[in-house]
Simulated assay, not measured.
Amino acid sequence: MLTGLAPTGGLALLVVPIDLEAPKGRLILPQVQTIRTILDQDSWCIVVKENALQAALDRLNQPPDLVITDSQAFSEVSVIVPDSVPLTSFSILFSRLKGDLSLLVNGTRQIDQLRPGQQVLMCESCSHHPLEDDIGREKIPRWLQQYIGGELQFSHVRGHDFPEDLSPYQLVVQCGACMWNRREMLTRIERCQQAGVAISNYGLTIAFAKVIFPRALQPFNL
């Protein structure tokens, strides 16, 4: 997950918002797995909410080797973190861990080809109960429509449900797939490739729609 991004003995600063979608009393799986990966490679991490990010940076004697944020906080975090510090998101790390980052990046770039009225398929691996302003059902659709300057048609699937016919869709946006193994995610990517349909994931799509895509990919040299 973090190969080549945070050195052994290095410091990663994790930005973890606590909002309505955050489960009570615990972190979500991508955050937990990231922390465990950092510990396994004998590196350090500091975990803060977005409203404590500036204070955390100010208290460090030297900048962190990497900042990892929840994708939804990309805009505000990118303003605070100096350009010289590598910045990405948990979801983008999972696009590398669970899928093929290069293929998903190429799929994300096809967002520029979207036109009002076209169809986008939103896919969630788990079956959590959608809350108000849900990331997959409300926030990403809203940000995509703001980016292209018009309305899109969105469909939603959960778990292993996936249309046999992908031809109506111009874009598939998959969640981070933290509940899946890599083979399952690669199979979904392959299905989209066979159908000639672009596929992205939540974090990559948010970074693109928020116009900070190049910076979010800078740690990966893509």
Rank of each mutant, 00 (worst) to 15 (best):
I189W: 09
V120Y: 08
Q33E: 15
L87M: 03
L217M: 11
L29F: 08
I46C: 05
L60C: 03
D165Q: 08
P163H: 09
R215A: 07
S89G: 14
K24I: 14
F208H: 10
Q119N: 12
Q118V: 10
A177W: 00
P64K: 02
F74N: 10
L217D: 05
A207I: 01
D134I: 11
V67A: 04
H160F: 15
G203C: 09
M185W: 00
Q194L: 12
M185K: 13
A22T: 09
S125M: 00
A55N: 12
G99I: 07
G196I: 03
L152N: 05
A56R: 03
V79T: 06
C126M: 09
T205Q: 01
V79W: 08
R182A: 13
A6R: 10
I189A: 02
L97R: 12
D42K: 15
Q145T: 06
V85L: 09
F162G: 03
S125E: 08
F220C: 12
Q218K: 15
L2T: 08
V211D: 15
V105C: 01
P23Y: 01
G9D: 08
Q72G: 01
V16C: 03
V79R: 13
I18V: 13
F154Q: 05
G25A: 04
Q170R: 15
R96G: 01
G149Q: 10
P23K: 03
F74T: 09
V173N: 01
M185C: 08
L14W: 07
L57N: 05
